[in-house]
Structure formats: structure tokens, C-alpha cells
């Protein structure tokens, strides 16, 4: 939790807020303004920004609405990390500042900048639409309102935590894939998709999943866990991402995608060698022809420029591979059992 302990005993001090500024009407590039204001212990970053806007510079622009951590408006980066300004204590951030007494405030990443700390949320909404982030009820509209679906606690618990998401876009801002590829589905939309897919009242699981395993979808995630670490509602987003992948592989047999093939090649390497066979992994993931045409030239260039060592053509099994294999099989068996009992 964000309540600080005994690090800063004093009740009031001057704090400098280094605020990202950009007004597209006049600025050709962004810059920072420093605002030094007196701050009492217990004040949130949002209240400090409000103070700056009301008393120092009314042109500083940011979104804020409920001020209680539930509407998700005030997502921004404080000292480099995406969070809600309204639930973040200035004192806690001071303890993490690189420069003593200075707190840096910047807009969220990976969404188009509008002005100062305000970014455009439309791309996120468009993705929610693209991946059908809604329950498409199995009940016909004409029957609605007459009776309840009966939902067991077990079913409810599958999506309960995911429905905490307030779409603040902190995870979107922290996502390392989105930095490279703006078309990537994004963690928030994967979370919502998962939430819909495990809802027994929903009827379009298969269509949604088919969309999720396409390009820019669920297989693009590289497990950096930054979405989960930055989630302001502590939602285990990676569980949702793994959930969709397992669903795609196990129950739906959607193995004909490069993501699925990659995962399977990974598994088989680990089982056989205890480590990866990097040289052949791309061929097994994307097929020989595609890899020759698209990846090989780049790989050769990288090796020549010494950006990567040439992969050893033959990989010997790791030491102790026999013991490892039996443990590996045991683990796989456990996972299978888990899935079975989960589905019941």
C-alpha cells in the first residue's frame, strides 16, 4: 500500500514537481516546467497538481474526476512509473526520487499525446471494440429481464478480479510490446477479453479467441510482467494472458498459429535438451520458407555486425538431463490435472 512509514518524519516541506509540458498549438517539442510548492505529509500527487493549477499556473493540463481511485482518469507517470495521481502519496514518491526533493510527472506512454499530461484514449477504445470486449449473451434479447442465469461462486471467481479493471491505461503505458508495436492488442484488452471468455453467459468465446490468436494478439506478449507490476488494482493480468494462451492451445486446438508453434517448439526443446535450440527455433515457429525470406537476412546481418553471436548448430543436452526430464514430465502431468479439475 502507498502509506509511507517513518522515512520522512517532517510534516511539511517544499517539493519541486517537474511537469512535462506540450501544447500542440504553440510548441514544436515538449519541455519540462518546475513548480516548487509547499506540500504537507499525506497529500496525493493529484492534490499537488490541483494546487499548482489553482495557485501557480492554470495552464497545466491533466485529467482528473473522482479523485478516489475508481474512475481511472488521472493515470500518468510519476517518477517514470505509470500510476494514478489521486492514490499516490507525494511522500512515497519523494522516497523514490532520483533527484532529492524533485518529483517528475509525465504523460502515459504508448498512447498519442494531446497536451501536457493528457493522452488520447481512443486507440484503447478501438481495440476494445476490435476484440469484442463485451458479453454477447446466450440469452435472446426478448427473454431478458425474466430470469437470472445461475452462476456458481467458482464461475464467478474466474472473472471477479478481472472486473476490477478501471481502464486507467497504466498497463498500456508500461507495456514493452506496445512501445515497439502500437497495433498490439495491449494488456488491458487481453484482460478484458479473458474476462469475457471465461464468463459462462457469453456466447462468442470462439470468435473472440480466433481474433486474439491472430497477428498483434495474445502471442506477442513477452512476459515482461510490467503490466501486472504497474496495475493500480493489483490485478494478475499475466494470469489472464496465460489463461487465453492455454485456452487457445489446450481446449480449442488452435495450434496453427506461429505463437502456438513457438510455444510448442519451446516445450519440446526443454524436454529434449533442457535448453533452447536457438538456430532452428525460428524455422519451427514460422516455417522454413517464411524464415528464410524474412528472418534469415536480418540474422546474418546481425551476426556480421556482431549484434548477436552465431547460434551453435548442435546443442547438447544439459547436464543432469535425465533427472530433469522426469521432473519435467511430473510437472506437465500436474498442470494437466490442474486444468481438468479447473474445468469441472
Amino acid at each position: 500500500m502507498t502509506v509511507s512509514t517513518d522515512q520522512h518524519k517532517e510534516g511539511k516541506r517544499d517539493v519541486t514537481f517537474r511537469v512535462f509540458r506540450f501544447n500542440p498549438q504553440v510548441d514544436s517539442k515538449s519541455y519540462f516546467d518546475d513548480y516548487t510548492i509547499p506540500v504537507e505529509r499525506g497529500i496525493t500527487v493529484l492534490r499537488a497538481l490541483n494546487y499548482i493549477k489553482e495557485h501557480v499556473d492554470a495552464s497545466v493540463s491533466f485529467r482528473a474526476f473522482c479523485q478516489a481511485g475508481i474512475c481511472g482518469s488521472c493515470g500518468m507517470r510519476v517518477n517514470g512509473i505509470s500510476m494514478l495521481a489521486c492514490t499516490t502519496q507525494v511522500w512515497d514518491m519523494l522516497a523514490k526520487s532520483k533527484e532529492e526533493g524533485v518529483i517528475k510527472v509525465e504523460p502515459l506512454r504508448n498512447l498519442p499525446l494531446i497536451k501536457d499530461l493528457i493522452v488520447d484514449m481512443d486507440p484503447l477504445v478501438d481495440k476494445m471494440k476490435h476484440y469484442s470486449n463485451w458479453v454477447d449473451s446466450t440469452m435472446p434479447e426478448s427473454e431478458m429481464g425474466k430470469k437470472e442465469f445461475l452462476v456458481s461462486e467458482e464461475e464467478f471467481l474466474k472473472y471477479d478480479k478481472a472486473t476490477d479493471c478501471i481502464l486507467c491505461a497504466s498497463c498500456v503505458s508500461e507495456c514493452s510490446i506496445l512501445r515497439a508495436n502500437k497495433e498490439y492488442v495491449s494488456p488491458a484488452v487481453l484482460l478484458k477479453s479473458y474476462r469475457m471468455n471465461v464468463d459462462t453467459r457469453d456466447s462468442m468465446h470462439d470468435l473472440r479467441l480466433a481474433e486474439l490468436v491472430k497477428d498483434h494478439g495474445v502471442w506477442d506478449c513477452t512476459h515482461c510482467y510490467r503490466c501486472q507490476e504497474s496495475c493500480v488494482k493489483s490485478i494478475p493480468i499475466m494470469d489472464a494472458i496465460h489463461g487465453i494462451r492455454e485456452d487457445a492451445l489446450e481446449s480449442r486446438g488452435m495450434k496453427d498459429t506461429s505463437g502456438a508453434k513457438h510455444a510448442e517448439a519451446f516445450m519440446s526443446d526443454i524436454e529434449k535438451k533442457g535448453k533452447l535450440v536457438e538456430a532452428t527455433l525460428p524455422f519451427r515457429t514460422n516455417g522454413v520458407l517464411w524464415t528464410m525470406q524474412n528472418l534469415l537476412p536480418m540474422a546474418v546481418k546481425m551476426i556480421l555486425k556482431r549484434r548477436t553471436p552465431p547460434p551453435p548448430p548442435m546443442v547438447k543436452p544439459s547436464k543432469g538431463i535425465k533427472a530433469f526430464r522426469s521432473e519435467f514430465r511430473e510437472m506437465s502431468e500436474h498442470v494437466k490435472q490442474d486444468h481438468k479439475s479447473h474445468k469441472k
Binding site: S137, D160, T163, D202
Partner: peptide, 21 residues
């Protein structure tokens, strides 16, 4: 009627032991 309708379109209501809202 309206609470059931919301339930029917996906609102994640908490549940009682008999699985009703």
C-alpha cells in the same frame, strides 16, 4: 426486471449459495 436484465448482459453480481444474485 432491470437487475435481471443487467445480469443477463454480463454484470458480475456477487452470488448467494444457491447461485442467485
Amino acid at each position: 426486471k432491470i437487475i435481471r436484465e443487467l445480469e443477463n448482459i454480463g454484470t458480475p453480481w456477487s452470488r448467494l449459495d444457491d447461485n442467485t444474485i
